[in-house]
């Protein structure tokens, strides 16, 4: 028990990096996903195709590969070649990747809204922005809540991939402790940390789902 208490401060430090990456990714990837989803359902065929290709590539290759590419590969690209620090590189890779997943979720949600909703809005004189903001998106949010919840919990665990960039996130801190102390207890504590984060998210999303269930 004393051992566990002694390692908790370090593990909390590691969790801070994990949480920072998590929150920044969510805050940037969701708007990116919405934006991409609107491109995906827009009437410009070229835009639709570009975004479809983007989504295909980002979902069809491992996040780990994308992470390594942004960190180690970008500097070698002519002209735009930039070297990012480990944390910005991680954020960039995660946002691009999760933006693609959120795009597909939002696209499916937007397409699930019956045409009659647009028509009713139109006969009431609402313009495109009003229709989207006040009629369509609130209904989309309800539909996408379960898949977004899933994706968000996956993200908590995916943050551990930044391990490969030698950042001291929760997972790497854990491994360092295991190697230093020849004790596997840190693994158990890390599992509990991840579970607690997932549990809080699940709880939050359940609350949201209940809130949105008021109208059906």
């Amino acid at each position: 028990m004393d051992y566990i208490i002694s390692i908790i401060p370090q593990m909390l430090m590691g969790t801070v990096d994990t949480l920072r990456l998590f929150f920044i990714t969510i805050v940037l990837a969701i708007p990116l996903g919405i934006l991409l989803a609107f491109c995906r359902v827009s009437s410009f065929a070229a835009l639709r195709k570009i975004v479809a290709a983007y989504v295909y590539v980002l979902r069809g290759t491992p996040l780990m590969l994308q992470l390594l590419f942004v960190y180690f590969g970008l500097p070698f690209i002519p002209v735009i070649g930039i070297r990012l620090d480990d944390f910005p590189a991680a954020v960039l890779a995660f946002v691009l990747n999760y933006g693609a997943y959120f795009c597909e979720i939002f696209r499916a949600g937007i397409q699930a809204i019956p045409r009659g909703q647009y028509e009713a809005a139109k006969t009431l004189g609402m313009n495109y922005v009003q229709t989207m903001r006040r009629i369509i998106l609130p209904q989309v949010f309800k539909i996408i809540l379960p898949p977004v919840s899933n994706e968000t919990i996956t993200l908590v665990k995916d943050t551990s991939l930044i391990y490969v960039l030698a950042m001291n996130d929760l997972l790497r801190t854990t491994r360092n402790l295991v190697q230093r102390d020849f004790n596997i207890m840190p693994f158990v504590v890390a599992a509990v940390f991840y579970l607690v984060m997932s549990m809080i998210l699940t709880y939050g999303f359940n609350k949201l789902e209940k809130h949105f269930a008021r109208w059906d």
């Binding site: 019956p114 006969t123 009431l124 313009n127 109208w215 059906d216």
Partner: peptide, 19 residues
């Protein structure tokens, strides 16, 4: 669009805003 929305429309499927 302004001229068109001087006409109210009632649909077979109601199309109320559920939220």
């Amino acid at each position: 669009s302004q001229i068109a929305c001087r006409m109210g429309m009632v649909f077979q499927q109601f199309n109320l805003f559920p939220h």
